[in-house]
Nucleic acid binder design. Structure first.
Lengths: 213, 213
DNA sequence: TCCAGGTCTATACCAACGTATAATCGTCCA
DNA sequence: TGGACGATTATACGTTGGTATAGACCTGGA
């Protein structure tokens, strides 16, 4: 079931902690990549599969909290688990609000980290699945011509062919032709199917895919 | 726009803190109810409108964290803002994971609490709006006969009338009659409309509404 | 026992949809 | 300039959906 590759990235400036964490995680069969800084993490090739990021809050230069926000801004949605030796409550609250999965204070029990890591990987796996499905749909939507996209959205909005024809000042048969092409290209097997696809591809992120191109 | 009533409930066993918080919140025009214990809060009549709960983490008897979970279990989804004088990081992380909106440590700036309260009330307002809309749809769905519900779901699944007829061992005209009744009762103006309604009313909570009755 | 409500069906007609075939027109590119 | 592609439209036919009208059957409650 879950035999696709998974990994854990560690970013901590303390080499002994990196080694300890990496050892612990490898001991349960996880693939681990450890970095002394966020730059090193970013410069490394992105690992394949589902994974998570174990991040020290306090890092030289950019803090772990800032880096968390930066990753989101870059569209990298890897689940983040914070660890810290000198944290405080506002820090943990900020991290959790920003979507961190866990915020552990040293010393923590090994099992707590392992639990968090496994949960994070499972979560990332699901997110990646959903992302892949959505990307596939967006790709199909992108393959539509502007006219086809326009008509698809009106169809999904519940407009009749004749209403669409009137709105766009076209004949009804033209709508039918485009509509058939939309069903084919989007691989929709029924109108309800198309409606659900339309609602997914035109959900807020990448709204421009409906307007541009 | 946002002129429907809103309120803040405070639960804190320290009377002086209750008074101070209530005074602060009332000074900005908010309606405040203050209670020394969770029991008092629960026994009070539920205020109308959108609101939030300002909760001390450390309470005699049941802790604020436990109470937060209890409220969720009771289906009361009031946004919770924790305040504490003696909190720690694991406590704040637990609270945030359980959906708390904010976790403030005393002493905090008045403005921080006010910001959190306003945000919480706005959030509750939206949630209540969504809940009300969904309840309305569920009410309509509940008004369907078992047969109508069954057919509605098959229609929304993309089945043709003739396919539904075959599956239920009925004639096609029977499906048409029920289907028309479904559109009328659900107040759906088009098939896409019905599809979206079906997806909402049969989303996981209250799944039984499709099977029972 | 009568009635209401739910269920099922039929006939008939019209509207809407889907598809096949084919043609025209314009743009952009090799 | 020839061709690919997008857009448009037409005719024609068949399928599917929507609605009106009307009747039959059953069950549970007044």
């Amino acid at each position: 079931m879950t035999n696709d590759p998974s990994f854990v990235c560690i970013v901590d400036d303390d080499a002994s902690i990196r080694q300890a964490l990496a050892g612990l995680l490898r001991s349960v069969g996880l693939t681990v990549f450890a970095y002394p800084s966020t730059e090193d993490f970013l410069h490394d090739a992105r690992p394949v599969g589902a994974g998570c990021l174990v991040l020290d809050v306090r890092l030289p230069g950019q803090s772990g909290l800032e880096f968390q926000r930066e990753l989101e801004g870059m569209g990298i949605h890897l689940p983040v688990i914070f660890i810290t030796g000198h944290g405080d409550i506002p820090m943990s609250v900020t991290a959790m609000k920003a979507g961190a999965l866990e915020f552990l204070t040293k010393p923590f029990r090994d099992q707590d980290l392992l639990d968090a890591v496994h949960k994070a990987i499972e979560l990332d796996r699901e997110r990646r699945r959903d992302d892949a499905a959505l990307s596939e749909l967006r790709e199909r939507f992108r393959s539509l011509t502007p006219r086809e996209r326009e008509i698809m959205l009106l169809v999904a909005a519940g407009q009749l062919n004749k209403q669409i024809a009137a709105a766009l000042n076209l004949s009804e048969i033209t709508i039918k032709v485009h509509r058939a092409q939309v069903m084919r290209k989007m691989q929709a097997k029924s109108l309800p199917d198309l409606v659900r696809i339309a609602d997914k591809v035109s959900s807020l992120p990448f709204r421009f895919s409906g307007a541009e191109l």
